[in-house]
């Protein structure tokens, strides 16, 4: 198994080196003539007002929170799905119970208006 992951590790290395090389080549041949106007943040020609890293709507955070819960859930479900074929029926149903509990959570969040953007 470690052999397979050694390959993944090497692939990660190659996958970093190839695009890295593209940037290196371009760094070698491309001109470099920076000036303040060229480097100013692009806002369609209008001067930037205030800080560029602006604050964000809380909704982004809330949706990510909901996502996190379901992400963890699906991770639990993968071993269950792999083993499903070898399980007796009532044991398989426990996975369904697991899903149902969380679908209830989704319905609750929905009813409370958490899935609304505005």
């Amino acid at each position: 198994m470690v052999d397979a992951w050694l390959y993944i590790g090497l692939f990660l290395l190659v996958g970093i080196v190839i695009p890295g090389m593209a940037i290196m080549i371009s760094w070698l041949v491309a001109p470099r003539k920076p000036n303040p106007v060229k480097q100013s943040p692009y806002e369609c020609g209008v001067e930037t007002v205030g800080e560029s890293r602006v604050q964000f709507k809380a909704q982004y955070y809330i949706f990510t929170l909901v996502f996190l819960v379901f992400d963890v859930e699906t991770v639990f479900l993968f071993p269950w799905a792999v083993a499903l074929g070898k399980l007796p029926l009532f044991v398989a149903l426990e996975g369904i119970v697991f899903i149902l509990i969380l679908v209830a959570g989704l319905v609750y969040a929905w009813r409370k208006g958490m899935l609304e953007w505005v």
Partner: peptide, 12 residues
């Protein structure tokens, strides 16, 4: 063309 274009790094 992409290779010989300048890589602009924005201020900040």
């Amino acid at each position: 063309k992409l290779i010989i274009k300048e890589n602009i790094t924005p201020a900040g």
